[in-house]
Design a protein around this nucleic acid. Structure first.
Length: 104
DNA sequence: CCGGTGACCCGAG
DNA sequence: GCTCGGGCCACCG
């Protein structure tokens, strides 16, 4: 059971149509303050064949995180979120007040 | 073993 | 709004 497995478990619990922030996932995984690890963990995920809804994880500002290393998967993320019914604002942000996952 | 590298976050100015 | 700086720590060469 590695640190990453715990992170992946949390991400798998995010329901359709909701999102969570990196920091939020870190907290739920008992890794408060280590949001960076969450980002790194998702970077390592196999986008093609994993069962992890990686696209439901965004940064604390409600934006999709961009990186030169993502090779267009950031655009894919936007598309997948819209397919789940999440409306992005004209400047590409997500309203956390409306869509953020509230774990029980 | 060591150091560079991140899909991050928050507070200060 | 912005930019900086510090904290975080697993991974990889």
């Amino acid at each position: 059971m590695s640190t990453y497995d715990i992170i992946y478990d949390i991400v798998r619990q995010i329901p359709v149509g909701k999102v969570a922030t990196y920091g939020q996932v870190a907290e739920l995984a008992n890794l408060a303050g280590k949001a960076r690890l969450v980002g790194y963990a998702l970077y390592r995920v196999d986008i093609q064949s994993s069962d992890i809804p990686w696209h439901r994880v965004i940064n604390a500002k409600g934006e999709i995180s961009h990186s030169t290393l993502r090779q267009g998967t950031d655009y894919l993320q936007k598309t997948l979120l819209e397919e789940e019914g999440i409306i992005l604002t004209s400047d590409g942000k997500i309203k956390l007040s409306q869509y953020q996952w509230q774990p029980s």
